[in-house]
Amino acid sequence: MKKSFELEDSFKSLSQIPRSEIQKRKTYNSIVQTGRPDRPIGYIARNWTGSLLTIVMILVCAAYLLTEIKSPSQEGLAALNPAELFASSEIVITYLTKSDSAEQFNLHSNLTRKGVSIIDEPGWLEIMNRTVNGRNTVKNAPKMENAFDLLLIYEGRKPDQCKLWINEENVYIKRVKEQRVYKVEASKAAKVIAMIEDMEMQVQF
């Protein structure tokens, strides 16, 4: 028993190892200077206000931009649509015919058939360009009646299928797949109406 106790005592004496206090301080300073503690989730949770506000602001901005792109306001200067974001191509030719209904679009094929008017007159093309590529949209457009199907052919871009109608000396154009309605500039509307009336007589829509 005595020998065992002595061995235990020797073990305990090995437990007591002195250490330089200066070295201990140096080591501590090195640790504190070298590494900052990784921020725990709890720390973030306690300081969530700033982070949350930032995230909310980003989300609000993103949502606003998305809304403006997808369904822009209906009055005044309209927001850009996705196609316009990339490029505003020039219209090179248009096809016009009488609409059967507000829902149907008749200019899918056989564009040279009787009743379809092909228009590449520069003045007309410029008016169409300015109208559908401009921002002059109207919020409370009059109801679409006696409309025309208008196919706009672009250079290097898919055609636009539009509805065109006349109401009280004003001309309105609307892309089939969009809700917004463009209004031809008042000074140009008379020319458009006159051309359509000429075409109506010539091709007998």
Binding site: Q23, T27, S30, T34, G35, P37, D38, G42
Partner: peptide
Amino acid sequence: AEDLTQETFLRVYKHIHQ
């Protein structure tokens, strides 16, 4: 031993919240 003590407590410092 001193170097390893430093390394040990550096890890403790970084992960004490865990």
